[in-house]
Every structure is written in structure tokens, then in C-alpha cells.
Amino acid sequence: MDTQKQTTRLLDAVLFREIWKAMKVTFKHMFHRPMTFQYPREKRTIPDAHRGALGLLRYDNGQERCVGCDLCEAACPSRCIKVISEEDKSLPLQRYATEFYIDITKCVFCGYCVEACPVNALAMTKMYEYSTHDKRTLMFDKQRLYEIGDQHLEDAKKYLYAHNQEQDDEESRTYRYHFPQPIGKTEASDS
């Protein structure tokens, strides 16, 4: 046995058998479909749960969902959100965000703000292509965030469903509510 082992070892050394074995694996891969894809031309399919850029959402009737409660600001681990809220003087008891900033250069995309939001005004989208030459444009303000929200509304909704933030559309309509109207009155104000 020993001699046989010795012989094998000698042959291994002389014939570079391990190289042949490895080459075999490598050559086999020549017949595989390539794993890579050509990015700007081909795009990945992104899962619903994907945590991309944040957007602000509106109710179906176009009203801003955000009530400026600042909970996202409190929840944010990187302190990149700044909400400035105020009373909407035209509607007593109506609080809304006059300004809403997300410093996307600081954002860590953890999704805590979405989890925290008591009205599901925030959602993450599948948008990830917003690289820029100017860092200033990465300070997303309220307008930009609503634009993202409007453009990627479907993705945003899917995100909320995927992360159990909302049930499906139909069900969520029953418990979705507007401040300051109590629940149950929402149906009327929706239509």
C-alpha cells in the first residue's frame, strides 16, 4: 500500500495531475451560460423587498400622507432625515410637513423610517440610479421625495406589502386613515 501511495504521489508530482484535474473543471465551465450580465443594457430584476431610494407617498385622492410626526427622524440610525412640520392653518388640527429632507449621502437604507411611519407615508422604491456629479442633488427635499413616490408608486406599494407594512390594497383602504378624521370616516373623505 505504502509503495502504491508513494507511486501515486510521485506520478502526481511528475504529471502535474492536480493541474489537469483543475483544468478539467475549468474547461467544463466553458459550456456554461455566463453568470454575468451587461449592466446598463441589461438590468437586474429587483425583488419587491428591495430597499432602494426613499419616496413619499400620497393617498389615492392626492392628499399627502405625511403628517410631519417626526417619528422617522427619531427612528433613523444615521440621523439623515429632517422634518419641519407646522400646523396647516386652513384646517385646524391638521399637521403637515412643510419641509422634508433626506440626506441620501448619509442614508444607510435600513428602512427603519418606513417601519416607524404611523401613516405609511414613506416607502422604499426600486430606484437606485441617481448617481450625480453634484453632491447637492443628493439632499432630497420634499418635492423630490414626492416625485420619487409618484413615479414609483407601484414599487413603493409592493415594498410596503413585502415588508408587512400594509396588507394588500383593498384591505389597507379600510384601515388607512387621514388625520384628523377618526377611522371609519375615511371612506367618506376618500371619495
Binding site: K82, Y101, D103, K135, R136, M139, D141
Partner: peptide
């Protein structure tokens, strides 16, 4: 020292 970051805020 990045003024533009604070400007918006």
C-alpha cells in the same frame, strides 16, 4: 464646512 449640505436644511 460643506455649506451646501446645510443650505437646504
Amino acid at each position: 464646512s460643506f455649506d451646501f449640505l446645510n443650505e437646504g436644511a
